[in-house]
Design a protein around this nucleic acid. Structure first.
Lengths: 202, 202
DNA sequence: CCTTCAAGTCATCGAACGCTGACTTGTGGA
DNA sequence: TCCACAAGTCAGCGTTCGATGACTTGAAGG
C-alpha cells in the first residue's frame, strides 16, 4: 500500500476526467479498428475496452464513423524528408519494419486501415497518405523518365512488405529488421530510382 | 425477337434450376465479398444480386461463412511453373496486372480477400496461398543465401502492386500493363533473385 | 389431368447493431 | 454543508443481421 506511487499515478486512475476518458476511448478504438476493421468492431466493444459506457462515444465523437476518423488519423509521422536523400527509402522501410506501432496492433497504420478498405472514404484517405507521403517524395528523387511509375512501384514494395509482415505473416519477413533488409533495400531502390541509394539510415 | 439466340440462351433464363441458382449465388457472393469484404456484405445483398430468396443460401451452402469459403476458393490458377523459369516473375505479375478478374471485382482474389482479413481464417488462407503459390516457387529459383527472405521480398512487391493498383488506385500503376512494367520487373527480379530474369512472358 | 417432390418463398425468431433522451452520481466552488 | 453542473449510466428505440421451419409453386411422369 504505497502512497507516493499511487499519488504519482493518480492522474491515470482519477475518475470523471473528460479528456482522459476521451483519450482512453481513442486508444481503444485505434487498437480495435486496426486489429478487426471497422465493420467487425462495435461501439460496445470499444467502450468495454476503455471501461466506460458506450454512450460516451456519441457524446464525445458524434458517431462511430467520426470516432474511426479521429482514431485512424495518423499521429504526425517523423518527417521522412529530414536526413540524407539517399537514405529516404531506408527511412521509409524503417517506419514499416522497426517503428513501434503497438497502438495500432503492431502494424503500420496504413496496413491496419486496409482492413477497413471496404468503405470508399477509407480508401480515399489511404490513397492521399500513400501518394503524398511516399510516392511524391520518391518521384522527386527518381532520375530519368517514367518517374511516377517507378515511384509507385517502390511504394508498392513497401506496402507489400508491411502486408506480408503482419497480415500474411510470412516466416522470414515477420522476423526481419531493417538491418536484415539493408542490402536488398539498397539494390532495389537503386535499380528503381536510377541513382545510388543506401539501405541503412545512418 | 430472334428465336435461335433466345433458344441458345434459354439455359440461362430457365427457372427452378438448382445448379444454375447455386452458381448465380456463388457469382454474386464472389463479387460482393471481393468489393465490400465479409462483414459489410449481408446474405440479403447477395441473394438480391442473384435474384433469389436469401433462404437458399443456407439451404445450398449451410451458412454465410461457408458460402464465403466456397466463393473465395480460387479457381485453379494457370500453372505458374509452366514455361521458362526466367519468366516466372513476369508470369506472376501478369496474373496480377493483366488477368481478367472481373468476377472478383477487378482485383486479384488475394487482394480482394485482404478486405476480409479481420478474420483469422481468412488470414490463414491468404498465408497458405501466398507461401505455396508464390514464395515457394521463387525461393526455388533464388541463388545464394537468404533465399527465403528474398523470395518473400519479391512476393511482397507483387502483393503491393496489386494493392496500389486497386485498393489505393495510384494513378500510374492503375493504368499500367505488364508490358509497361517489363523493364522494371526484369531489374528488380534479377537483383533480388541473384540470377538473370526476364520482364516479358514470351 | 393430377399427383409428387424438389425448388423457391414467407413469416419470423433472437441477438446485435448504432444511436437517443432521461436519469444518476461525483466533484469543485460558494 | 449544500448546490450546480459536468461526467457518466441506464433503459430502450428502430433497424438489420444470420438463421430456421412451415409454407407455396411449378415442372416432370404416369
Amino acid at each position: 500500500m504505497s502512497t507516493v506511487d499511487d499519488l504519482a499515478r493518480e492522474p491515470a486512475l482519477q475518475k470523471r476526467d473528460r479528456e482522459a476518458t476521451r483519450a482512453r476511448l481513442l486508444e481503444a478504438a485505434r487498437l480495435r479498428f486496426a486489429r478487426e476493421g471497422y465493420d467487425a468492431t462495435s461501439v460496445r466493444d470499444i467502450a468495454g475496452d476503455a471501461g466506460v459506457d458506450a454512450t460516451l462515444i456519441f457524446r464525445y465523437f458524434g458517431s462511430k464513423k467520426q470516432l474511426f476518423d479521429q482514431a485512424t488519423t495518423a499521429d504526425s509521422p517523423a518527417d521522412l524528408l529530414a536526413g540524407p536523400p539517399e537514405e529516404l527509402v531506408a527511412r521509409m522501410v524503417r517506419t514499416v519494419v522497426d517503428h513501434d506501432w503497438t497502438a495500432y496492433g503492431g502494424e503500420h497504420p496504413l496496413v491496419a486501415m486496409l482492413r477497413s478498405s471496404a468503405h470508399e472514404d477509407t480508401r480515399l484517405r489511404i490513397r492521399e497518405e500513400v501518394c503524398h507521403t511516399y510516392v511524391d517524395a520518391l518521384r522527386d528523387l527518381a532520375e530519368g523518365e517514367d518517374t511516377a511509375l517507378r515511384a509507385e512501384l517502390l511504394s508498392a514494395w513497401m506496402v507489400g512488405i508491411g502486408i506480408l509482415r503482419s497480415v500474411v505473416a510470412t516466416p522470414a519477413l515477420s522476423e526481419a529488421r531493417t538491418s536484415d533488409l539493408a542490402p536488398h533495400i539498397a539494390t532495389v531502390a537503386t535499380a528503381l530510382l536510377g541513382r545510388p541509394m543506401s539501405g541503412n539510415t545512418d
